[in-house]
Design a protein around this nucleic acid. Structure first.
Length: 323
DNA sequence: GCGTAATCTAATCAACT
DNA sequence: AGTTGATTAGATTACGC
């Protein structure tokens, strides 16, 4: 869908006033422009990202200004009133989620019709549900790893059946023994203090100057894994205070295909959007115990140094990117 | 205070220009 | 090749109970 000029004019005008419109403004704009509130939301999100990218290209003041921008508009407009889904709605959504974690537009429309929930809320519900499952899975994996230090976490494991009603994001309340360590801790353990903004900023999402973990779309995951040999590491064995499974590219810095370690986060191993086939099994993943630790450490060191050497803070990526 | 819907950023895609 | 709308993960915020 392409917005026409008058629609863009209206949105741009409102964007100048407030890049963080609340639900009332978005509803109003939806009426005025004739496009959905969800599309308004998406348009503003894309605009913020792209204008920021232009504005702060090669600008180290980004972090500070971003925060200021957000604080300036935050809370000025109300959020959408929190929805309480009914049991039957949750049941319907959960059943759909069991069948397919990535419903397309057609499936969502069907669900919207069935439940009376808007497409936007369905998208949000599935997002939160997947997030909950992902962290639940990691939590279970790290918990079991503690019992069996030889067990390698395989991100390609099938997702467990959805037996709970609704508790996405409750991973935040995992007990310490089960908790997935924060990305900040992971970053501080993985990266030397050469990063200009320190480990705290490294993974801070909106604050990040250094690229955050690169994601792979569900439909891409299988393809990329086939092109890159990766070592799946049980990081609990590295005594670095980490419990999150990390996969490290087993290739030299000159091998361009798999330089970015973040391409191999667990999140990339997702069911294909267009396929009901389970992800390839874990046979392609090498057990750390199968390789020479010295060889591994050498590659690891080489890789780290290459990332640091190649990283230009003015560029958004430490290594070459597809685009 | 807890559970979780809503919202954020960044990365990425496909379709279009 | 650049632009744009859409979708995703992961993180965070904030509302309702």
């Amino acid at each position: 869908m392409i917005l026409n000029e008058s629609q863009k004019d209206i949105l741009n005008e409102w964007f100048e006033k407030n890049p963080y419109p609340g639900i009332d403004t978005r509803d109003y704009l939806a009426k005025v422009t004739g496009i959905s509130e969800f599309q308004i939301l998406t348009w503003f999100q894309n605009q913020r990202t792209r204008r920021r990218r232009q504005k702060y290209k090669c600008n180290f003041g980004k972090c500070q200004t971003q925060v200021q921008d957000k604080l300036q508009f935050k809370h000025e407009e109300a959020r959408q009133i929190r929805t309480n889904f009914t049991r039957s709605q949750i049941k319907t959504l959960t059943q759909a989620h069991d069948k397919n974690h990535f419903p397309g537009i057609a499936a969502r429309k069907q669900l919207a019709k069935q439940t009376g929930i808007s497409d936007k809320k369905i998208v949000g519900w599935f997002l939160n549900q997947r997030a909950w499952h992902q962290h639940q899975r990691i939590g279970e994996t790290s918990g079991s790893m503690a019992e069996d230090p030889h067990q390698i976490p395989h991100a390609s494991d099938q997702l467990p059946p959805n037996n709970h009603s609704t508790n996405p994001n409750s991973f935040r309340h995992l007990s310490p023994s089960n908790a997935v360590i924060s990305k900040q801790s992971l970053a501080s353990a993985l990266f030397p203090p050469l990063t200009p903004f320190g480990p705290q900023d490294f993974f801070r999402g909106s604050m990040s100057q250094f690229p955050r973990a690169k994601r792979v779309q569900p439909s891409q995951a299988v393809q990329r894994r086939e092109n890159c040999h990766v070592v799946s590491i049980d990081t609990t064995r590295l005594s670095m205070g980490m419990t999150l499974g990390v996969k490290i590219p087993l290739c030299t810095p000159n091998q361009r295909q798999c330089q970015d370690p973040s391409e191999h986060t667990g999140s990339e191993i997702l069911p294909s959007k267009h396929s009901t086939q389970p992800p390839p099994d874990s046979q392609q993943w090498l057990d750390l115990g199968q390789i020479d630790p010295h060889l591994f450490l050498q590659h690891w060191d080489e890789w780290l140094q290459s990332v640091i050497a190649e990283w230009d803070p003015c560029e958004r990526t430490p290594v070459s990117r597809k685009n």
